[in-house]
Structures are given as structure tokens and as C-alpha cells.
């Protein structure tokens, strides 16, 4: 029994050492989100994902136009909301792997601002990450947008948030929506990488498993941590910002 305890202490010390080491790196760490970097995708895949993204951008833009026509002053509010989605990725949250990570913010954004508006705001956030943080890229903007600003939020909104809202305890629906939005982003990115770089021996599936396996180490804990964070933020907002939530039309959770 004592031997067992001792081992636990050693494991704890080792974990702490890893945490300290990785904490040192976070000083100038990029957001730990999984964006495909500039130039990483071959030309035809870069073009393909741009083509996939464009219809969604158009729908999002038409919706924003409609909002602006009804309330022209919303232009400023949308800008502030976009800044919020972008800044949210600068929040540091503890993650299981030890290093701190950053939420994607689209999970919260989709619950507050609705799906297609988040597509536009998320894409603007991606452009900013590419130009201001050198994270992601312009040639891969289409691909990253499909995973982070389109796929993740839309799936989370239509398949999780709307069906669950009001039927289960609020924390369950909020957590699941944020978790799925993150997880979908990671699954879509792995798929994009595997499609562009299928393994010569094992094909698309083998390549997909390799990519998904490599990135699961960072992305699974991140999705859980973000889920917890957003439940806490939502609790805070419900007690402190009820009028603002009502103004955005977030009700009946």
C-alpha cells in the first residue's frame, strides 16, 4: 500500500514538472487551435475548400445585410461581437495535458449570435489570426473556415443546440454544444488533411486515423475544457446579463 502511494507521489511530481515546462512555453504560444497553416494544403485542395466555403459566406452575408437593413446601428454591435469572438481565443484555460490552451469561441458565439452570423464573424477572426498572429493563412482560409466557422458551429447549432435547448438542464445543452463545436472542428480538419495527404499504403482512412490520433492529444482535452468554461460563462451571463441575453434573443434555455 505504501509502495502504491509513493508511486502516486512520483507520478504527481512528474506531471507537475511537465506542467511547469509547458507553462514556460505558453508565454509566446499561439492559440492551441488547430488551424491549417499557410501554404500547407496543395493548390487544388486550397481552391476546393474556398469553393465550399463561399456559399456559406454568401448566406451569412445576406443575413447580416438583413440585420443591418432593419437596424443600421447593429453594424457596431456586430463589430464588437466579432472582436469578442476573436478575443475569446486569447483566454487562457487550464487543460489536462498541462499546457494551458485557448477556446475557439465559436461554440459560445453560435449560442449568442446565431449560426450564420458566427460564420462571418468566425471567418473575420480567422483573417485576423492569419494577419495579426501569423496563425492559419489566406490560402487555407477556406479550409479553416469550413472547419471552424462553418462546420463546427452549424453542426453544433442545428444538431445539438436547437434539439436539446429547453429539454435538458441548461448546463448539459451548453456543454454539449460547445464540446461538439470544438470536436467537429477537429474532426473536419483531420478529414481535410487526410484528403489532401492520403497515405500511399493505407489510403485515406489510414491517414485520417494518423492525423486524428496525433491531434487528439491536444484537441480532446481542449474540447472538454472549453465546454466547462462556456458552461461557467453562461451561468455568469444568466445571472448578470439577462437583459443583454434577451436583446440577443437567447431565451428558453
Amino acid at each position: 500500500m505504501t509502495k502504491f502511494k509513493l508511486r502516486w507521489r512520483q507520478t504527481g511530481a512528474a506531471l507537475l514538472a511537465i506542467m511547469l515546462l509547458s507553462a514556460n512555453q505558453t508565454v509566446w504560444a499561439k492559440p492551441a487551435q488547430m488551424h491549417i497553416m499557410e501554404g500547407f494544403l496543395p493548390l487544388r485542395w486550397a481552391i476546393f475548400w474556398w469553393a465550399v466555403a463561399i456559399p456559406f459566406w454568401v448566406i451569412g452575408f445576406i443575413q447580416i445585410k438583413k440585420i443591418l437593413k432593419e437596424k443600421p446601428e447593429q453594424r457596431l454591435m456586430l463589430g464588437m461581437a466579432g472582436g469578442f469572438v476573436f478575443i475569446l481565443s486569447a483566454l487562457k484555460i487550464p487543460s489536462v495535458t498541462g499546457s494551458s490552451s485557448h477556446p475557439t469561441g465559436t461554440g459560445l458565439g453560435v449560442m449568442l449570435f446565431g449560426p450564420f452570423v458566427v460564420t462571418i464573424l468566425g471567418t473575420i477572426a480567422l483573417v485576423f489570426q492569419a494577419l495579426l498572429l501569423a496563425h492559419g493563412g489566406i490560402s487555407t482560409l477556406g479550409a479553416n473556415s469550413v472547419s471552424m466557422a462553418i462546420g463546427g458551429p452549424l453542426v453544433a447549432y442545428y444538431l445539438v443546440w436547437l434539439p436539446l435547448k429547453g429539454r435538458v438542464p441548461a448546463w448539459v445543452s451548453v456543454f454539449t454544444t460547445a464540446f461538439i463545436a470544438d470536436l467537429m472542428t477537429y474532426v473536419i480538419t483531420s478529414t481535410q488533411l487526410a484528403l489532401a495527404f492520403p497515405n500511399p499504403q493505407t489510403g485515406f482512412l489510414g491517414s485520417w486515423l494518423t492525423f486524428a490520433g496525433i491531434f487528439a492529444v491536444t484537441q480532446f482535452p481542449l474540447a472538454i475544457a472549453e465546454g466547462i468554461l462556456i458552461v461557467l460563462i453562461f451561468n455568469f451571463l444568466q445571472t448578470n446579463a439577462a437583459p443583454e441575453l434577451k436583446e440577443l434573443g437567447v431565451e428558453g434555455i
Binding site: 453594424r75 456586430l78 463589430g79
Partner: peptide, 10 residues
């Protein structure tokens, strides 16, 4: 305009 606002808001 929205992008410029996002930049400022950031």
C-alpha cells in the same frame, strides 16, 4: 466596416 470595427474592438 464590420471588419474595421472588429479590428478596433479587438
Amino acid at each position: 466596416d464590420i471588419t474595421a470595427m472588429v479590428y478596433r474592438a479587438t
